[in-house]
């Protein structure tokens, strides 16, 4: 039999799973460029890393989605992170290792990984 504490626990654990279906979606959005250029440059393993890491850390209020070509194909794979009330951050030339670091620094600790951003690359 479940106690109230257990009920709360289930609720919190489930939150990250169902958040994308809530109406007031105010969480962080991770958008991976997945046009032909992105996929050819290796966007799929980058996307998979984001999904795995977010799931492993049980992060709340984060959704991962794809988008089409952003326009700077030479810098693919490109990942953009939208946080409510903050300016969008664009990471370029991503790979799975970089993705894992972005999860731990940016998504968990809210510190932008400057060296991977488009500003640093140019």
């Amino acid at each position: 039999m479940k106690s109230i504490a257990e009920l709360k626990e289930i609720r919190e654990q489930m939150q990250s799973r169902i958040n994308m279906r809530k109406e007031e979606d105010e969480g962080i959005r991770v958008v991976v460029g997945m046009a032909t250029c992105g996929i050819a440059a290796g966007a799929r393993p980058v996307l998979a890393t984001f999904v795995d890491e977010i799931g492993r850390r049980n992060l709340q209020d984060v959704t991962v989605s794809q988008t089409g070509c952003i326009g700077v194909c030479r810098l693919e794979p490109i990942v953009e992170i939208y946080e409510p009330g903050k300016e969008k951050v664009t990471y370029v030339k991503m790979d799975p290792e970089k993705a894992a670091r972005v999860v731990s620094e940016h998504l968990v600790n809210h510190r932008v990984v400057e060296e991977y951003t488009i500003g640093a690359a140019e």
């Binding site: 990250s16 799973r17 169902i18 994308m20 279906r21 996307l47 984001f50 999904v51 977010i54 799931g55 049980n58 959704t63 991962v64 989605s65």
Partner: peptide, 10 residues
């Protein structure tokens, strides 16, 4: 249920 990036509701 694990974290999935997309939910397809039917």
């Amino acid at each position: 249920m694990n974290f999935a990036r997309s939910h397809i509701l039917v």
